[in-house]
Design a protein around this nucleic acid. Structure first.
Length: 251
DNA sequence: AACCAGTTCAACCGCTGGTCG
DNA sequence: CCGACCAGCGGTTGAACTGGT
């Protein structure tokens, strides 16, 4: 996913870094530090410009740098800081140890920006919900629903569980779930599309906790308890859908 | 299987501000 | 004060990857 290596007219190498180059740069900086980025490549035996070396070190080779697997807490913090500072990525990165400004910038544009642009759809559900069901013969039916437990969170892009999908009346489509207290309907689009695509999603989604990542990064119990209930975990959300289905007409 | 469009992210580029002679 | 040099920052690019048809 990177540019192919090539040499520019000055004989400087550009594009993707090789393992050998990484090793040279890492070894040099760890041993001597980056006293002068411009001069560093010459001393480190690299055919790169200092700028490129600096970027590679800061974004990739630094010992404490983390990649991917952003936690919910980090996402929320980035969103909050972006509201506060705008596109000041280095300022935002300063609040997230181990994250480079470039990484945060990419993460913002590929994940978080869309999330915030979807409106404040992460706002909590109130106590009453409304949904529309289109039956096989095309009839539209509007129903209300009051969950046993108030304020369940639903995350964006949460595919519905197999249990929920299968418990729908054959041929019927759940179109909208709206918050009748605030007149906002906010599950609509994502949930609808999720209905159609659920079969294609991996079963891992339902068995893997949201906080789990490849590094086995799981929040310890005390920290989990501090997380806002409105940014809860998928397994919590499933309960709401189970309950929704229990209370749908015909069940 | 092949193609296409959308997504992701490492790396590049140009600009800005700080420092020094 | 001014110009040169440098590090750092943020926007953009482009190739690999992914998912849909």
């Amino acid at each position: 996913m990177v540019r192919a290596p090539y040499f520019d007219k000055n004989g400087l190498k550009k594009g993707a870094w090789s393992q050998e180059e990484d090793d040279k740069l890492r070894a040099y900086v760890l041993r001597y530090g980056h006293w002068n980025w411009r001069a560093l490549p010459t001393f480190a035996g690299l055919a790169r410009c200092g700028k490129s070396c600096r970027l590679r070190w800061l974004n990739y080779l630094r010992p404490d740098v983390k990649h991917g697997n952003y936690t919910k807490k980090e996402d929320d913090l980035i969103i909050k800081l972006h509201k506060q500072f705008g596109n000041k990525w280095s300022r935002i990165a300063a609040e997230l140890p181990g994250r480079s400004d470039n990484d945060i910038k990419n993460h913002w544009h590929t994940h978080l920006k869309k999330r915030t642009e979807k409106g404040q759809s992460s706002s909590r559900l109130k106590e009453t919900f409304q949904y529309e069901v289109i039956s096989e013969n095309g009839d539209l039916k509007v129903e209300s629903f009051v969950p046993n437990t108030s304020s369940y969170p639903i995350l964006e892009n949460s595919p519905l569980s197999p249990e929920l999908s299968s418990s729908l009346t054959s041929g019927s489509i759940l179109v909208i779930v709206s918050n009748t207290s605030t007149s906002s309907n906010w599950i609509a689009e994502d949930s609808l599309s999720s209905f159609g695509t659920f079969e294609n999603t991996s079963g891992d989604f339902w068995t893997q906790p949201f906080v789990a990542d490849q590094d086995g990064c799981k929040l310890p119990t005390p920290e989990r308890e501090l997380v806002s209930p409105y940014f809860s975990y998928y397994d919590d959300n499933i309960d709401l859908f189970y309950q929704l289905m229990q209370e749908l007409p015909g069940n």
